[in-house]
Design a protein around this nucleic acid. Structure first.
Lengths: 243, 243
DNA sequence: TTGATTCATTCAATTGATTGAATAACTTGG
DNA sequence: CCAAGTTATTCAATCAATTGAATGAATCAA
């Protein structure tokens, strides 16, 4: 109810969800409340009564609009994906579709990677509900539903491929080399950990949440590590590779 | 039941859990089954009937031995912590307790870090139930219960402090510097991502689970990034730090 | 016998979903 | 412009199913 207002600015165009295109109220309020409750608890832990109460609508509206609890959950995931898509995906797509013959230099790759991370952290701060997003996505990693298919194919996959391409170009390798894909995973872990290990970070840093200042500090730390990874082999004469 | 056998080799000395010290059967079977079911589902999603069935004991035994579902959950967490403690903590403790005046060289630090990650990955492969551990721990990060206090204080904290110390020594900084702590978080993310993002890794690599061979490849990839991070500033003349 | 453990059964509470009536919004025909 | 009809939406009440827990008898071990 109160929380809903600061979320409206997302303006999710949920018209694609069912084809209907004119219910701005109950339907959207349920998605908003669902995001919050599913994020705080989880698919099983959240109750439809709790969500309906939070949304200020009758419990039966969940079945009416979404067919049931699971339908609402999927609608929430689609809403999340559409927002992430708009905010962090364009950069990733332009990178992974770059002509393979025309590789990035290590420093170009580094700056593009840092730019993607900046966009990622910015989105994290700009949307108050981002913490709910990450909780839902991380739980899907532990216990995938069909919602994960949607997230993976529409977001995760592209981001990973972009980072693999950047890292491969920077280290003179190929982005489909399994070892390079694994290094890209490791690289992505450097900033995903601030979502996946949020409670650990919170305790170690004595933070309450991620504001712009915290995001700035995270960005600086990740950038330092990233610079080392992207430029190490260039700056090192006898580039000591794996094993 | 069938699954329980391949877990017995853990030999968790759960005598410290309640003081009783002579029920090897029903009690331990419940912890084993609880680990599996709580890992596959979660605290709310797992049902006591399911756990009792899996353990091959009567449902009432859960209340009898652990006071209830939550008590069993805590016992499972304590069991997990005790195993991790025995396998990856000694190295971390010796590092964080090293005399601050007697710092590690960058290469020493690198090798110690790589050693810890090797121990970590080895534990992951050696214990078939490790995938259940990680699921439980990761969910606790998203939705901390009092179980997280126990995990954090007994395991996570020490591991993070050890890595912060190593990274600080390697880059000539202080391990309590917030920026260094953040870089250590980022660094830890490089291998935790293989737990936190397990479904993503699984799809990208077309892996079923983590066997010794997969762990070896992960180790090689993480080591490559780690070497860059630990030795970059040493090998780079004008060490271009953040911004 | 005595205490510890296991068992089938039952309980109250909560769950997601459904129902059918009530109400709002909109359309149509005059 | 209106009135009747039609659809879309909201609502309180209820349902069957499942939940964690409790019960008291039965079983076992010492």
């Amino acid at each position: 109810m109160t929380k809903a207002s600061d979320w409206d600015l997302m303006a999710v165009p949920d018209s694609f969800l069912t084809g209907k295109g004119s219910e701005p109220d109950a339907r959207q309020r349920l998605i908003t409340a669902g995001l919050e409750i599913f994020g705080a608890y989880n698919l099983e832990g959240a109750t439809t009564r709790q969500i309906a109460l939070q949304a200020g609508v009758n419990q039966a509206a969940i079945a009416y609009y979404f067919g049931g609890k699971e339908g609402l959950y999927m609608a929430v995931i689609e809403s999340v994906v559409s927002t992430i898509k708009a905010n962090v995906l364009p950069a990733a797509l332009s990178i992974k579709e770059r002509d393979p013959a025309n590789g990035f230099t290590p420093r170009e790759a580094l700056e593009l990677a840092q730019g993607m991370i900046r966009a990622f952290l910015g989105t994290l701060v700009r949307f108050p509900m981002a913490s709910s997003w990450s909780r839902i996505v991380m739980r899907e990693q532990m216990q995938p539903t069909k919602g994960f298919d949607y997230i993976y194919e529409n977001v995760i996959q592209h981001i990973h491929q972009a980072f693999a391409r950047l890292l491969a170009d920077a280290t003179g390798s190929h982005s489909e080399d399994p070892q390079m894909i694994l290094r890209a995973h490791s690289l992505v872990g450097q900033f995903i950990i601030f979502l996946a290990g949020r409670e650990t970070v919170r305790r170690r840093m004595h933070w309450q949440c991620y504001t712009a200042e915290e995001a700035r500090q995270i960005e600086a730390a990740v950038n330092a590590n990233l610079e080392a990874i992207f430029l190490y082999e260039t700056n090192t004469p006898g580039k000591g590779n794996d094993q």
